[in-house]
Computed example of a mutant assay.
Amino acid sequence: MPAPALPADQGLLLQRASVVLGGARVLHDITLHLTERRIGIIGRNGSGKSTLLRLMAGLVPADSGTVNVDGIDPMADRKALLSRLGILFQNPDHQILFPTVQEELAFGLIQMGQPKALAMARVQSRLATAGRADWAGRSVATLSQGQRQWLCLQAVLLMGPQTILLDEPLAGLDLPTQARLTRSFDALAQRLITITHDPAFVQAADRVIWLERGRIQADGPPAQVLPGFVAAMQHLGASDADADLSD
């Protein structure tokens, strides 16, 4: 059964936000107000969707326009952002910093200002609740990719963010692990904003945004957005040319 919704918040607000990387404009005047509980952002490789995710998380700055997360500028107040916004990367190895499970899980709590002893106690409680109490001192290097992804998700959840950004969270995982993580995501009360190129993963979303060449191509319920996206991708797939991405 899904967890109850968290209290209402301000959501994520982007106003005419643009990003330039390596001299090329990757995002063009993006204006969005994201308040729904489940949001999908779809697009093919090179469409700018991962850059959009990083813009929301304050990992890249806007070259023009503004980004606001629950009243917080993500580039200006990183500490305040920790309790409002979390991010789960496609590759957990890009996220994990510490050699043991307990150190990795405690890091965010300590960054938020919790005493180390309290942070470690919360970590032990979380692991015990998940039936993984014996993982505390375990080396992260011994975990499978699916287990490392689970670890990263728990590290984010311990900080209690209102919104979690998911960057292709099931990529590279086997089917049983995908099923287990999908159940975990479905049960979360947090707002989930999922970046993906797979329309099937966002069919049940409340809202889907189709990004193409750094611009919003379509925005609305899945039934309105996904058929056009699928048709466009099938049309492109029928051609052997992919030079349009470099136009």
Rank of each mutant, 00 (worst) to 15 (best):
P99N: 06
G237M: 12
R213K: 05
R16I: 02
A204V: 01
L211T: 12
L27K: 14
I195F: 13
I209G: 09
L158S: 07
A223R: 15
R37M: 06
A121T: 11
D240E: 11
G160Y: 02
G131W: 09
F98D: 00
L6H: 04
L81E: 14
L151T: 06
T129Y: 06
A231C: 02
F185C: 15
H197P: 14
P161M: 07
M56G: 08
L118T: 12
N45R: 12
D70V: 04
A243P: 00
I42G: 10
I39H: 01
N91D: 15
P99S: 03
N68R: 05
D63R: 04
G137Q: 09
L6T: 06
I42S: 08
L143N: 07
N68W: 04
I96W: 04
A189M: 05
A5K: 07
K116E: 11
A17Q: 14
I110D: 06
L21Y: 00
A223C: 09
G237D: 07
T100W: 02
G86Q: 13
P227I: 13
V69M: 11
R16W: 08
L32R: 03
F185Y: 11
A17K: 12
T142S: 15
Q203L: 02
L81Q: 13
E104P: 03
L157C: 12
P161A: 07
P99W: 14
S139T: 00
D73P: 04
Q111K: 15
T182P: 00
T177V: 15
Q162P: 03
M56D: 06
Q145W: 00
I195C: 05
F107H: 05
Q149I: 01
P221G: 10
I164G: 05
F229Q: 04
P61D: 01
D174H: 03
L55D: 01
V26M: 08
Q190L: 13
A232M: 12
I216C: 10
P222G: 13
D198T: 11
G160L: 03
L181Y: 03
R180G: 08
R213T: 05
R54H: 14
R122Q: 11
F98C: 00
W150Q: 09
L211R: 10
G131V: 15
L245M: 12
I209H: 02
F201H: 05
A171F: 02
Q102Y: 09
D63I: 05
I96S: 08
A128S: 12
